[in-house]
Amino acid sequence: MVRESFAIGNVRVRAGSERDVELPITRLVTGGDASLPVRVVHGREEGPTVWVSGAIHGDEVIGVEVIRELILTLSAKEFRGTLVAVPVVNVLGFMTGDRYLPDRRDLNRMFPGSPRGSLASRIAHLFMKEVVSKCEVGIDVHTAADKRANLPQIRADLDDPRTRELAKAFAAPVNLHARLRDGSLRQAATDVGAKVLLYEAGEALRFDDESIKTGVVGIRRVLEHLGMIDKHPTDQPPASLESRSSGWVRARGTGILLLETQLGAMVTAGDRLGGLSDTFGRRVRLVRADRTGIVIGLTRAPIVNAGDALVHIASVEE
């Protein structure tokens, strides 16, 4: 029996085929149209429906490359189930390298959106209607905020057994239990029954090989776990560290920051992480770890003011 075609927007994708779809967002002031680009890989055989998305924040470009490399490894003729790949959700912010939309709204605080709301709200509604509502599992790719860097990590509701299982399958260096944020894609998708992993890695407006490779391999492991593709015979997923809490070490003074730690470093409470100096090199204050754990985030800004976030440390479960 031939599998039913997959409906999205005003098109249908035949089983055993791939298709690029443009979902209309809005008419631009120039008279052109802005659309949400989607690649559908509709497998020949039955299986789950999964979405992967990137660039909900327009300056978080790593997800675009992760999804590009991922879909190059997939064949609809050998695929079981359906993958809905949306490399750029915040199309207008992405074009200008801006985290936010032109109206300065954060798209990841506007879900589930409304068909008659603001531009951000309309994009959120379109994404929920055409993508999330059709999927059982989602993987949303993010990077650190501007002038910060993140160790590859999964953020998810680790108290949900199914979500925890998917996080373990991804096998990122760290799985961090993260509460749901009001208005986020993860919360809205969870509310309609989807299981969501948020992959955080790297820096805004930058590619880096480790973050991209970890993302591609991790998503493929999830697809393998769901039975959508065959398992790689030689892949031995590493064990992930698990964290239930994390926090930023903040500057206790103003100065020029010289860090002496790096992403992935294991630290103990009281360890020296770096120091603050004045413009003549005189040491103003040391920076020390306030907890024991693993470094999952860093600032890349050398000039800091008192109270600025410097080093993100996740406490690690035994």
Rank of each mutant, 00 (worst) to 15 (best):
R3V: 08
I8Q: 00
G9N: 06
D20S: 15
V21H: 02
L23E: 09
L28I: 00
R39L: 15
G43P: 06
E45W: 07
E46N: 14
G54N: 10
A55E: 05
H57T: 12
G58C: 11
I67N: 04
E69M: 14
S75Y: 02
G93T: 12
G93A: 13
G93F: 09
F94T: 00
P102C: 02
R105C: 01
D106N: 15
L107P: 10
L107H: 10
R109Q: 10
H125K: 09
L126E: 03
V131D: 10
K134Q: 14
D140S: 14
R148F: 09
L151V: 08
I154E: 03
R155F: 06
D157N: 15
D159Y: 12
R164G: 15
A171T: 11
R179G: 15
Q187E: 14
T190D: 08
D191C: 03
D191R: 12
V192F: 03
A201L: 03
E203D: 02
R206T: 02
R220D: 04
R220H: 04
V222R: 05
E224P: 10
L226F: 10
M228E: 09
I229S: 08
I229R: 05
K231F: 13
H232T: 05
D235F: 03
L241W: 12
S245Y: 05
A251D: 07
L263D: 07
L263P: 04
G264D: 08
A269F: 04
D271G: 10
D278W: 08
T279G: 07
G281Q: 13
R282G: 12
R282M: 11
V284E: 02
R288F: 00
G297P: 07
R300D: 08
A306S: 08
H312V: 06
I313A: 11
E318W: 05
